[in-house]
Design a protein around this nucleic acid. Structure first.
Lengths: 137, 137
DNA sequence: CTTTTTATGTTAAATTTCCTTACATGCATT
DNA sequence: AATGCATGTAAGGAAATTTAACATAAAAAG
């Protein structure tokens, strides 16, 4: 729980995040606009990102490089969020499945179509998916 | 060693550091000028601080609140740096003691005089000495 | 008890970074 | 051919940061 706080502490400015992720600021703002991340703001309205935000951005980048579109990314992050919420409160809560934004059929079709690609491009000198987790234990 | 990289990765802008440490930017710059920290710079000449920098600033703050002056802080950080350097390369290196900037007598006198005070003031909502270490394992 | 040093505050001007908005565009999808 | 998605780019303004200078209270030195 104290870990939760650390992961969500607003620490990084836009410039550092673009360096860390090698995303353009345009991309980062677009992803925020699409509801994929929720950085807080300074008094002067500038974005401050947390470890979690950077982590999500790396996941988003990874997925989009595989051809997944925003809708797909949104769906996958939503699932992951649910998992984490479950882990956070381990009470076995009998709950009817929350309706996904997209039907299972739609999502399946979507992913099936998109996962037939594979853009490959060497990368380094910045964070890659999974590398961030080492910042905490 | 990979840990060393993480600890020294330039991540934080001035604003975040002043929030984290509750030091004024003036203080942070002064401590840099005195050689206590060495933040790197962006292309545009703005400071970028690492975890290590923030950690040192918290130590500096803690010491100065106890009345230790810059010279004393400098000495104590130097000692700690030596320790860490030793731990990093555990080769039993027979080395004659490096001459301190201040003689032992001077330092002793200095600390003895200064440690007779104790400014107490409640603090919260920011990092305190030792709290930062949890960001890594 | 003056004088000097230390550590920090404050202000100003210049520079850099970031913000929003708007328009442009290549590539898929329809 | 027309539309939508994801991103680039440019303009204008606001916020954050920088250096340099001057001010000052408290401590140290003489």
């Amino acid at each position: 729980m104290s870990d939760e706080i650390r992961r969500n502490m607003p620490l990084f400015s836009m410039g550092i995040v673009t360096d860390l992720t090698e995303l353009s600021s345009r991309q980062v703002r677009y992803y925020e606009q699409q509801g994929l991340i929720r950085p807080v703001r300074t008094k002067g309205n500038q974005r401050l990102f947390s470890f979690n935000d950077v982590d999500r951005l790396l996941q988003i980048k990874s997925l989009m490089e595989k051809g997944v579109n925003i809708a797909g990314v949104k769906e996958m992050l939503r699932e992951k969020d649910q998992q984490q919420a479950q882990e956070a409160q381990p009470e076995p809560q009998p709950q009817e499945v929350t309706k996904p934004d997209l039907s299972d059929a739609e999502l399946h079709k979507l992913l099936k179509r998109q996962l037939s690609e594979l853009g490959s491009r060497p990368n380094q000198s910045h964070l890659i998916r999974g590398e961030l987790s080492r910042f905490f234990h």
